[in-house]
Design a protein around this nucleic acid. Sequence first.
DNA 1: TCGGGCGATACCCCCAAGGTATCACCACGG
DNA 2: CCGTGGTGATACCTTGGGGGTATCGCCCGA
Lengths: 303, 303
Amino acid sequence: MDLDLRKLRYFVAVADRLHFGRAAEELHIAQPVLSRQIRALEHDLGTSLFNRDSHGVTLTDAGRQLMDDAGPLLASAHAVRRRVSASALGSRRLVVGFRAGIPVIPAARVFEARHPDVVVDVQRMEWDDQATMLLDGRVDVGYVRLPIDETGLRLTPLYTEPLMAVLPTGHRLAGKDEVSESDLAGEPLVWHGDASTQPTRRPHPDSGLRVRGVEEKLEHVAAGRGISFVGRSETVFYSRPDISYVPVPDLPPAQIHLAMAADRTSPLADDFFAAAQATAEVTAECGNYEMWQRANDAVSRHG
Amino acid sequence: MDLDLRKLRYFVAVADRLHFGRAAEELHIAQPVLSRQIRALEHDLGTSLFNRDSHGVTLTDAGRQLMDDAGPLLASAHAVRRRVSASALGSRRLVVGFRAGIPVIPAARVFEARHPDVVVDVQRMEWDDQATMLLDGRVDVGYVRLPIDETGLRLTPLYTEPLMAVLPTGHRLAGKDEVSESDLAGEPLVWHGDASTQPTRRPHPDSGLRVRGVEEKLEHVAAGRGISFVGRSETVFYSRPDISYVPVPDLPPAQIHLAMAADRTSPLADDFFAAAQATAEVTAECGNYEMWQRANDAVSRHG
DNA sequence: TCGGGCGATACCCCCAAGGTATCACCACGG
DNA sequence: CCGTGGTGATACCTTGGGGGTATCGCCCGA
């Protein structure tokens, strides 16, 4: 009658590896049990999900369809459990996710003014888990950078910011007012999974270093292992003496969106949405290094 | 470990009725079983979901939260099962839902030109099930009318159409070129659940007749039991001699959106989206009675 | 031809979901 | 003040399914 989420989880494990033995090991159950559970799921759905050839295990059409759907469904179930647990503790709390460089403070202030009893908790996200964290309820609402798989999400554009090249301070282009993409054509690239900071197709997409967070990226660039790109706001919050940032005006700007799980209704999250949209200008301006300099200059002149 | 969807379904039954015995009856299980299952669910979630006072059963905060989330989750699970079954049959088929008066043909033609092997199936929806049908997979993509609860849905605006008053042919205003809302202020109203055709607040919202489909609405209006409103396109597809339609320019127009479940990824549905957006103009124009008259006149002149 | 890898089968145990009978509690009427 | 009916919880039984181990059947490569 009802879909069995345990079996679904087992199915995902097998479909990921296309190998019953290793999937069973991963799930900490015996292989025959897994075989039987998958058979039961197939019986339940009235169709076979795997082709068991002598050459190995492959997905059927139905299996592929189930694979597409299983992830979001399991994530939703996880999110439900998480939210119920949270509301059981009576916690008036909103978890806001953000990508590196995006300040949550402006919107949080406005939000907390309207909801003095709610604590805004922040949680940094990376390119490869921003969607998952929203879908499985680890964050209630998040500032995300495009591109993102918007399956199961509700996105609202907030603002854009220009991209900057990340160069070691000693680099030949380090002092320039701006560079073009072609100026950097020959440089080795420190890859970030986030395609928003991947300008155009490079000849060898798997050559060079792959990093996950900004700090690692900067570390590699500072060590001279390559160059990279970041959104302008990151230059404010991650400034270091051995790194230079140079605008690259001919690259399309990075898009910052606000996102939440599409299958939810939450007055708190809605109000945070409103607060974030109201403060989008301010939030964007926080990423403007010139603005901070002008402000600092004004203070020091008056000091 | 995993949420048990059967227990979740049981929970919804109890929460709907706030009565264990009747919920058990509805579920076709014995009442003690239901009590035990709910206890197990509460234990699993680590919190109580119901307050069992001597005065009856009420939801706790956690229970309310779970109630908000349970419906969409169960609908998603249902949708997954449905889609897997469909793809098991190898059926290249896309089910398009539509509200009364909205022609699917223009978009379907464009879509079928690109996917000759896919059959476009159509399914009429009413105001009260349009969201559910999209969420539980009975339709893959749908033309919906606002307002709609967009939880779990992805909406794209297509076009708007003016509202028309529905009057019996003998009505004092039946022949007019247009009427204003105030002209109709005293008339009894045939209520449609769909608020898109409910102009402003009426003094007694539960007075008068309540209907579900257009045909029933027209039947009542024709019988002189009241007046009503519809989108302009419905006047084309539901024209009858005993009913007159009169434009009401001072009412805000009805909004037609295209919708699909947000937790899905489907190339077929995406292509239908594209086709529907490309043919939005034509689709809207199909609802223009004047256009059809001009076309008919041209044919008869030439015939 | 034979051994190794892999999924399926056979056969156990045990827990949980289903059932029935009954209890505990409370509101309410006589 | 005491039955009485309604409601959820408890006790106890049966059964199906999820967990395990041992083993088979099959195919492939040495």
